[in-house]
Design a binder for these strands. Structure first.
Length: 272
DNA sequence: AAACCTCCCTGGGGGC
DNA sequence: TGCCCCCAGGGAGGTT
């Protein structure tokens, strides 16, 4: 999936086309996503005005006068703003038609994404948002916080960093990259990383996500922004996906690991 | 509690 | 060329 930088890139790309416009109607071609799309409830959005396009973790929140449309892109989702008359392709599951002949179209081949309707005033806003950790730019996300949350934890620091209850938005690509930048071995127990090193890690997480957002995110296969363009952070990846290559810092051959059914790349010399 | 494991899906790539 | 297996950016839900 799109990780945080890809979702944020999408948000920035689509927001100018949506904010201030009214929703003509929603079209659901395939309701079988990660959760069933609430087709009937979504009709409440017809005629509503879009007031803001926000992001929380990897969720996009389209705030309207009638309620909020919440979208998740899963592993393979992408959004584009196009003319409503453009014929849909396979895997174009959802359209949000606007009052100006344009529409926001969701494409998601693997269907791990989701579309939700949150009626205005509902509290808590949505169960899926209830137990999320801080955003990486939240003032509470720092070395002291990570060190405290990791105390006594024996799971790997990589799994810990990818836990959305600890911090949101860090998926497999950026977990690999941040741990490399901070010089921390991905299999090290989370509880055995010093506070100083967590301080470094928090800083690198933020810096890497910021840089990735600057260049439009990482496109591995099918991610595109709101205009259909790929992201260019892939060029700057130091370790992710670099099977058979050497460490960009010390030239030691990179190694791979399998952790929690996900691939990890790391430098055995730089990361301890 | 915390730490694993499985599963939801389609499609691309490599090996044979 | 085709088939088959493995792998992929997520993450909820279930089991130990």
């Amino acid at each position: 999936m799109p990780e945080l930088p890809e979702v944020e890139t999408t948000r920035r790309g689509i927001a100018p086309h949506l904010v201030g416009r009214c929703i003509a109607r929603t079209v659901v071609r395939e309701p079988r996503l990660r959760w069933p799309v609430p087709v009937a409830a979504l009709s409440a959005a017809d005629g509503a005005r879009i007031e803001a396009v926000e992001r929380r973790a990897k969720y996009l929140l389209l705030r309207t006068t009638a309620g909020t449309i919440m979208l998740h892109l899963g592993m393979s989702g992408s959004l584009r703003v196009i003319a409503t008359t453009e014929p849909p392709f396979v895997h174009d599951h959802f359209d949000l038609e606007l009052d100006n002949g344009q529409c926001l179209r969701l494409r998601d081949p693997r269907r791990f994404g989701s579309v939700h309707w949150l009626p205005a005033g509902a509290e808590p806003e949505h169960a899926l948002l209830a137990s999320l950790g801080p955003e990486p730019w939240d003032s509470t996300f720092n070395g002291e916080y990570l060190h405290r949350r990791a105390r006594g934890r024996r799971r790997s620091v990589k799994a810990f960093l990818m836990d959305s209850q600890v911090v949101v938005g860090v998926g497999n690509i950026y977990a690999n990259e941040a741990l490399f930048a901070a010089g921390i071995h991905p299999a090290r127990a989370a509880g055995r990383v010093s506070r100083a090193r967590y301080e470094s890690l928090a800083g690198h997480v933020r810096a890497i996500l910021e840089r990735a957002i600057e260049v439009g995110g990482t496109t591995l296969r099918d991610f595109t922004d709101g205009a259909g363009e790929p992201g260019y952070f892939r060029i700057e990846l130091a370790v992710y996906g670099r099977t058979g290559e050497c460490c960009p810092a010390c030239s030691t051959p990179l190694r791979t690991l399998r952790q929690d059914q996900r691939s990890t790349w790391y430098c055995p010399r730089c990361q301890r």
